[in-house]
Design a protein around this nucleic acid. Structure first.
Lengths: 150, 150
DNA sequence: CTAGACCCCGTATCCGAGTACGGAATCAAG
DNA sequence: CTTGATTCCGTACTCGGATACGGGGTCTAG
């Protein structure tokens, strides 16, 4: 159990062996996304052996997964670009990463606040709208709120 | 109390009296925004009296405020376009408005869930990153998580 | 009457994260 | 050898909500 792949099975520094389509499939993205990331400098474009197709190292797959994981935590591609620099065993990297993560956490909490503000107002308005039937004299509370002067 | 504006004070169907700049100032938006809304069909563009400037009715200000209020509750301009149709005293409008509001509330709650998921993961990772100093053998938990296979 | 502010109109640009298109070349299978 | 799938490459487009630019016309105060 928990047996790691023997060195022969998945060498960490494998040669460039994958076509772009295989990288895409392994990383779970579209080919165009890889091209896009290359243009954006997020991943390196391997040299083209004139009269042939490019071959990508396994690490490209890891880089893309890294990006996708960071995105899932709310990081933009620009931020991913910075985070990718921190990959590796640099002891300073951890502190920087922590800093980025804390900033992102603050940003997420700010968004959460804004959204739950919206949720609160909408909920209130909907409650006001349920009770006391509308139509006679008093207008829809929601529409009234949207029409409000202030 | 609750006295409605006498017809003489603020006639509901006032004549077209405002320049676009005055509308902008009163509504708290930029002139370009008004032009943009006109292009998008959110507000009507008054006819131009050839050799002169356009004059906007007061209601344009109200429409823009309406849009801004709806935006503040999370509605897109496309949705605002639909909500604007509901302005007025139509008894059906309230039911439709309520429906839109409920849908939006669900969408907001979904976003809240997604964001608080992110918040949770980031918080956990940051906690794991604080305790147990890094650098010797064990890598930064956050970077490790981003590098994870799955 | 002139300077400066405002208005008109069309077009282009921005952000972010891709997606789409299309022609040419190359690869893999039958 | 032919057919179909991939790859390559550049360019353009998408969505949403504006914002910016530029060269005119018009309005208002002094």
């Amino acid at each position: 159990m928990n047996r790691k792949n023997p060195p022969t099975a998945r060498p960490r520094s494998a040669a460039a062996v994958l076509s772009i389509g295989q990288v895409a499939k392994n990383a779970g993205v579209h080919v165009e996304t890889i091209r896009f990331y290359e243009r954006e400098g997020l991943i390196a474009q391997p040299p083209k052996p004139s009269m042939g197709i490019r071959r990508y190292p396994q690490d490209t797959v890891h880089r893309i997964r890294f990006i996708k994981h960071a995105q899932a935590l709310g990081f933009s591609l620009q931020e991913c670009r910075e985070l990718l620099e921190l990959r590796g065993d640099d002891p300073q990297a951890c502190a920087l990463m922590r800093h980025h993560a804390q900033e992102k956490l603050s940003a997420i909490r700010a968004k959460l606040q804004a959204l739950s503000q919206m949720e609160g107002v909408l909920t209130e308005l909907l409650e006001a709208c349920q009770q006391g039937r509308i139509g006679k004299d008093n207008p829809c509370p929601i529409l009234k709120a949207l029409d409000a002067e202030d």
